[in-house]
Write a protein that binds this DNA or RNA. Structure first.
Lengths: 151, 151
DNA sequence: ACCTTTCCCATAAATACCCATGGACTTTTC
DNA sequence: GAAAAGTCCATGGGTATTTATGGGAAAGGT
């Protein structure tokens, strides 16, 4: 099972390239294609990123819905069509499309945050302030976690 | 398994030609015929497009209905009879028939939206406004999906 | 013969590929 | 134990390839 841990901040060069952290690349090595599938949530200021196979598993869930149902159409549009497979080049870098740069307000640096089976990409400053916003929820979230585990 | 991801906007020239996005062509490479099977949604302003083999499999579902049932006849008319295989030329382009141009209100640009095992073709502006209409359903659709996945 | 459709080639821009550098950290050597 | 050598990684820049797209030539239909 893929597990992305830790966080890293790398520079975005003038061609729009960023190095994917080496430890994340190692984690992706046994996926069938060396791409990360990135998508911007419609209502959050960061990018989601999956290994190819792991994203496909997610997509399979959508494909199982009735092919032309309204639900499936919407999920297809907001997730499948919104996603983009970004190939990792020989030097371990991806090119972040202009559209995503805008969504996550990236400028010179990109922050990669491990989230277990996926990771997220942030403007470093946005991430810092998010951490502050998270703080008040910490205790109550922890409780939710242990409750879940005990089931 | 075919999986179309991401979305791309390409121009329609005065001969009615549009480039099929390269990543979609790559996805179609292992189909037995290099055509995309297109039909217009009867009640919505866009076109459905499938790889040849995948459309056949989809059509099997219709063929399985009782041969002379009303349902089967209607689906036969709105999907099988309405569908049209469009060959992909040597440069990776298709010619969009006049009839489809009307149905999807295409003029100078066509938007290709990956939907998993098929993709849809839109007027870019129509698509944008559709995304806006989708937004309110996003959270609830996601929940339905994960509920489905956990089964 | 004319109009339409298909095929073929040309070009510019975007993308992918290749190699080089410098820094941090490890390992080896004396 | 300190210096030297080696490794891995992020990053910069140049070059080759691919892609979208325009136009013209050939082929087909009426």
């Amino acid at each position: 099972m893929t597990t992305f841990l830790a966080s890293y901040t790398n520079g975005i060069d003038k061609k729009g390239r960023v190095s994917v952290p080496a430890s994340f690349r190692a984690e992706l090595a046994n996926q069938s294609r060396q791409v990360i599938v990135v998508f911007a949530s419609p209502d959050e200021p960061f990018l989601y990123a999956w290994g190819y196979d792991d994203f496909l598993k997610f997509a399979e869930g959508i494909k199982k819905l009735p092919p032309m149902s309204k639900e499936r159409q919407r999920l297809g549009r907001s997730i499948l069509a919104a996603a983009r497979p970004l190939p990792i080049d020989g030097d371990g870098r991806i090119v972040v499309p202009e559209h995503f740069v805008g969504k996550a307000e990236l400028n010179s640096k990109a922050m990669f945050a491990g989230q277990g089976d996926y990771f997220t990409i942030w403007n470093p400053e946005t991430y810092e302030s998010q951490l502050g916003d998270d703080l008040p929820y910490y205790e109550q979230d922890l409780e939710a976690l242990t409750a879940w585990e005990l089931e």
